[in-house]
Design a protein around this nucleic acid. Structure first.
Lengths: 216, 216
DNA sequence: ACCTGAACACCGTTCAAGT
DNA sequence: ACCTGAACACCGTTCAAGT
């Protein structure tokens, strides 16, 4: 429990997140974090038993930023859309943290809260048990997958290069072998990530509505 | 080009993937890979300019395992399902590589091939341009997001612990605050990842079919 | 209890030298 | 051209000692 303690957990989280946002994932080292807090590296081990625990703190810090007010007037599918987009935006604000979010098992209350809110909304579609689980898996997979799709991933369209360079790269591909790849690369230059995510989410929500149980 | 060269690219890929499969992502180090190939660490730099390039080779090795034969008789949505499940299985066979797949921009032909195949099938739903892009984003986000959902991620159900321990952990949560979380945790113990993925994918495909243009 | 420096066993990579 | 050992500048973490 508390006693003096030189730093708070929040200070660690804030400093660690700032390092990652500024310098990427590799910018977070025990030594760099200690330096930023103007202390020695070993001091951190008074707060965290391993580097990995630090990474969990960062995940928690990001997901804890989700602020979302339920609106009982909306139909479940509109409310679901709102939660999903909120989550997507928060994650996307901290792109370098995404690998950690996808990788570290977080057991923080903040994560439980937002998950329960999403499930509560989804349950209003008449789902329970295994069907609720599947709906949840689909929505969270879409959010997580989409959050880093244009960031990286195997099928990245925009790289370090300029948008023009990207499209040029795809148009340099043999058009008889990769016609559709060239087509969507072109379409991507006239689009943006949030628009694409919203439209993708709509497709899934259409499927969820078609499969919903009749409302009480 | 070729000259003698002590190793082939395939040998590097195979050895690197074997290290990751066996020891996790942290098992792949320049030194460990060199040792496995019975050479010095610096020899690797004759094949690869950075460690990151090695990681791209590994991504390529995994995605190159996708073998899928098109079946012209199937309707597009069944063919799409087949490709998606094939991709999901290949990725899931190498769980430790997932962070790399999600993170490294791969420009290998193998990745282009499977992407084009997926797009070709999706285009048969009557989509083109921006709509084709959105459909593609949705399907790939679902695959990528689902591939590591139960592996890790913020809402992980099975951890290092046994399934029974997992459900016990969730049932220890306050049931008035997290009723649905407890509900799906229970449902998850009677389920498996592939079943959940197939059902999630069906929801999305339903949405894609509802929004398809009339066939020619 | 909390703090911390020295030290250890690792990393990736540069440099310089070999064939 | 391809190979390679020594060396450098980093890591995370153990240990031991301080208050």
């Amino acid at each position: 429990m508390g006693r003096p303690a030189k730093f708070t957990r929040e200070q660690l989280q804030e400093a660690a997140l700032a390092l990652i946002d500024a310098d990427g994932l590799s910018g977070l080292t025990m030594r760099a974090l200690a330096a930023r807090l103007e202390t020695g590296a070993m001091t951190l081990y008074n707060y965290v038993s391993q580097r990995e625990e630090l990474e969990m703190l960062v995940v928690e810090a990001v997901l804890g930023k989700v602020r979302w007010v339920p609106d009982g007037h909306l139909p479940w599918y509109e409310e679901l859309e709102g939660i999903a987009i909120t989550l997507w935006r928060v994650i996307r604000d901290h792109p370098h943290v995404i690998p950690l979010i996808l990788t570290k098992r977080s057991r923080s209350p903040a994560v439980f809260e937002v998950t329960e809110a999403l499930l509560r909304t989804l349950a209003q579609s008449g789902r329970s048990g295994a069907r609720l689980l599947v709906g949840f898996r689909a929505v969270s997979a879409l959010i997580m997958g989409a959050a880093q799709a244009e960031l990286a991933g195997p099928l990245t369209l925009q790289a370090d290069e300029s948008p023009d360079d990207t499209i040029a790269r795809f148009q340099a591909l043999p058009p008889d072998r990769f016609p559709h790849l060239i087509e969507i690369a072109t379409a991507a230059t006239a689009s943006d990530a949030e628009t694409e995510f919203r439209a993708s989410l709509s497709l899934l929500i259409d499927g969820l509505r078609a499969d919903a149980a009749p409302q009480a």
